Simulated assay, not measured.
Amino acid sequence: MQEIFEAIKEASKQIQDVIELGDTAKSENENSTGDTQLKLDIASDIIIEKIFSTIPSIKSIVSEEREDIIQLNDEGDYLIAYDPLDGSSLVDVNLSVGSIYGIYKNDFSGENIIASVYVVFGPRVEMVIAANNEVKLYRLFENNFNYIKDIKLEKKGSLTATGSTQMCWSEQHKKLINQMYEDGYYLRYSGGMVPDLHQILLKGGGLFSYPGTTDRPEGKLRQLFEVFPFALTYEFAGGKAVNGKDRVLEIKTNHIHDTSPCFFGSNDEINRVLEVYKENV
């Protein structure tokens, strides 16, 4: 699997160049869920596919920007689902964005994810690899990703980041967030999944939530490309990930672009979610 990590490092260097010099305008295309693609999304997707196509151990890939699975090597062992540039609409206002990768075996499902990687493109380029029950942070310096430290969550954090449109929140979610504010939690929400989850990890804990809402009962974030990779990362870091009721990695996937409500955090925060969401408010 090391060759896959090295391929992601190389892709990240090229994507960073595209972000610095690339066109932030919208394209004329839409992705599989109807979102208008930015030219940066397309350029990043092309970079990743080109590099992955050279790795014999990769059997197939699927991008958040594509409709179908792409077969690469019949004898390969690994399947990779990736979001080439999550939060790309934030680039033109100079906020952090990221890439997310889930590495699977056998098929694309939560129970078969074995490793995940995400990359933050911000003031610094950082990569987090979750594998072998460990989470490790690397930082790009002089064209190399250097190991910085292992990441572990505390039992309880102090941050909360919650997405979706507030007017569409359920009564349970309103209660959850109001209770957290009353208990002194700090709001930290950029509109980018990668930087917000990264901040909670590096600050030791808290809660990131993107619930089901009246307009999107099954949530907005995609299981294979976003939800499962971060669920694995948080579990390996000593935290938890749920959909409000069940462990995220036990959710069934019927289609490669399925979405799910999701809550990622340290243990105290996730226990709080489960307690509130079991109530009939």
Rank of each mutant, 00 (worst) to 15 (best):
M1C: 10
M1N: 08
E6L: 14
E10R: 13
Q14P: 04
Q16C: 04
Q16T: 04
D17E: 12
V18N: 03
D23T: 11
N29V: 08
N29A: 12
T33D: 11
Q37S: 12
K39G: 04
I42G: 05
S44I: 03
S44K: 04
I47Y: 02
E49F: 04
I51T: 02
S53I: 07
I55K: 12
I61H: 05
S63C: 03
E67N: 12
I69T: 08
I69R: 02
I70A: 03
Q71V: 05
G87C: 12
S88V: 14
S88N: 10
S88A: 14
S89I: 14
L90T: 07
D92N: 14
V93K: 10
N94A: 09
N94V: 06
L95R: 15
S96R: 10
V97T: 12
V97A: 08
V97N: 09
I100S: 06
I103E: 05
K105E: 15
K105P: 07
N106T: 14
G110K: 05
G110T: 04
A115K: 13
A115T: 11
V117M: 05
Y118S: 13
V120P: 00
V120L: 15
F121H: 01
P123A: 02
P123T: 11
P123H: 10
V125W: 00
V125D: 01
E126Q: 15
V128P: 01
I129H: 08
I129A: 01
A131F: 03
A131R: 08
N132R: 11
N133Y: 13
N133Q: 15
E134Q: 15
E134G: 10
V135Y: 05
L137A: 09
R139L: 02
F141Q: 06
F145A: 04
F145V: 07
I148G: 03
I148A: 03
K149S: 15
K149G: 07
D150Y: 11
L153R: 08
E154C: 05
K156Y: 04
S158C: 07
L159R: 02
A161F: 01
A161M: 08
T162F: 13
T162Y: 13
T162M: 11
Q166N: 07
W169M: 06
S170Q: 09
L176V: 02
Q179D: 15
G184T: 05
Y185R: 05
Y185I: 00
L187P: 05
Y189R: 12
S190T: 14
G192S: 10
M193H: 00
H198D: 13
H198K: 06
Q199P: 00
L201K: 08
L202W: 04
K203E: 14
G205H: 00
G206P: 00
L207A: 05
P211S: 11
T213N: 10
T214Y: 15
D215G: 09
D215Q: 08
D215A: 10
L221C: 08
R222I: 04
Q223F: 09
V227S: 12
F228N: 06
F228W: 08
P229E: 02
L232I: 06
T233G: 09
G239I: 06
G239N: 12
K240P: 09
V242N: 03
N243R: 02
N243Y: 02
R247F: 02
R247G: 03
R247H: 09
V248R: 00
L249A: 02
E250F: 09
I251V: 12
H255G: 09
H255Y: 13
H255A: 13
I256E: 07
C262L: 10
C262E: 07
F263V: 05
F264C: 05
S266Q: 07
S266R: 06
N267Y: 01
R272S: 13
V281R: 08
